[in-house]
Design a protein around this nucleic acid. Structure first.
Ligand SMILES: [Mn+2]
Ligand SMILES: [Mn+2]
Ligand SMILES: [Mn+2]
Ligand SMILES: [Mn+2]
Lengths: 229, 229
DNA sequence: AGATTTATTTTGACGACTCAAAATAAGTTG
DNA sequence: CAACTTATTTTGAGTCGTCAAAATAAATCT
């Protein structure tokens, strides 16, 4: 039985189910959930059964889980807290891009809805967090968008970075050091599928070479800012 | 056995022992601790024995507990987080004076030392929180001061409010509505021990009558701001 | 001092979350 | 489709923090 007040563990389970369910009626496999939570599969099963009992999610034994409406509502609220906290830590406290995730992982469970609203106001109602991930609205809307990546976009065109998919500290530090945060504009000048590398050029003229795998972790959209020269 | 990472419960126990130990070598009685933590006496005893085992506090059975140096260090760090968070909530997020305690009670356990430092910087290294309580320094100094109160200060003199001792939401709302936050200047114009009431006058001319008991909850110091007229 | 009241500790139990290892179901392959 | 591999569930156990109620120690009062 799970009481009226969601514990930290409950919030984490629901948030990760949300994060792992890309398309709507998709079932999140137990293994993926357990791995995301850094917990053994047996633990995840036990917990999932309790959450299903509380109708926060549906459990199709041996196939996976999906969120119920109330579970989704709760998960979106936690995700909103996570991403607004990350934005606060970077924009207001000037913390490092690559380390705020760890902090937000704890703070997301300690922030009340009241504080959440005020934080949102202070930050000017941002639409996305420092990694380019969309911030769920107060009403629970999450606009997921599919973007091209540096490995799939058209060569030669100006692209604006919108999202960093691999959010490991290592990769984020790499992106930071090479001036590739969301918002930065780059052009893919070369792409060699045989060698598995691509080359970028920044407006400053600086060139960067990275693997296609790395490039696939950086989402972009066509940059239409510059006036015809 | 208590591991290397302090849990929320451990932090709360240590913080409340600190808060309850006014003079240095004083023993905090079990009952007071249990009451402060809203826990049964038996629970407090169990927990205290574990904390003593981890040498975070000393336990003299049937007499009380006191902090060890490492327990005190930990408690001061949590208290610093609590009070800086309260200051942030009031000064930056413009939250209500009387409600921030509840919020800080959770946030104090979710904030890292890194975030703590940045918050301190953002706030301009404040010395006291919105209730006038001193904020422990980064190095663990806590300058407690004994103040006069509205019930004990000299009648007729200008006094500056420095601290609200009773921090129940009710009392804080009362103080707020009558314009009596830390920093406000008032003069006690009358004090009737038989009737148990005293009368204040604010610089604006406004008069307020309150009980001696209520007055004892408001600490003051002599206000020496005004130039001779 | 002996009896009574009050504070503290002990005991037995429970809920929430977790793991390791054994059991079982599902998926895959010859 | 039977054998094998992989994913999931079950089982048994442990930790942490808690409570209710019984046992005991300390303080107080004739
Ligand atoms: Mn979390
Ligand atoms: Mn993020
Ligand atoms: Mn607390
Ligand atoms: Mn305070």
């Amino acid at each position: 039985m799970i009481g009226p007040m969601a514990t930290i563990a409950v919030e984490n389970y629901l948030k990760h189910v949300l994060l792992l369910s890309t398309r709507e009626p998709e079932l999140v496999p137990m293994g993926a959930l357990a791995a995301a939570l850094a917990v053994t599969p047996g633990t995840a099963t036990t917990m999932v059964k309790a959450l299903a009992e509380a109708s926060l999610l549906r459990h199709l034994p041996h196939h996976g889980v999906s969120l119920t409406p109330s579970g989704r509502r709760l998960a979106l609220n936690v995700l909103r807290k996570h991403r607004l906290v990350e934005t606060f830590l970077v924009n207001i406290l000037k913390m490092d891009w690559s380390t705020v995730h760890r902090e937000a992982e704890r703070l997301e469970h300690a922030i009340s809805d009241e504080v959440l609203d005020r934080l949102d106001e202070l930050l000017g109602h941002p639409q996305s967090d420092p990694h380019g991930d969309p911030i769920p609205s107060r009403e629970g809307e999450l606009r997921i968008q599919i973007y091209a990546t540096l490995s799939s976009c058209v060569v030669g065109t100006s692209q604006r970075i919108v999202q960093i998919t691999d959010q490991s500290e290592n990769f984020l530090r790499f992106a930071d050091q090479h001036g590739l945060p969301p918002g930065a504009v780059v052009r893919v000048t070369k792409r060699d599928h045989a060698a598995g590398v691509l080359t970028l050029r920044k407006p400053t003229g600086r060139s960067i070479t990275l693997s296609l795998n790395a490039g696939a972790q950086i989402s972009v959209e066509l940059a239409m800012s510059q006036v015809a020269s």
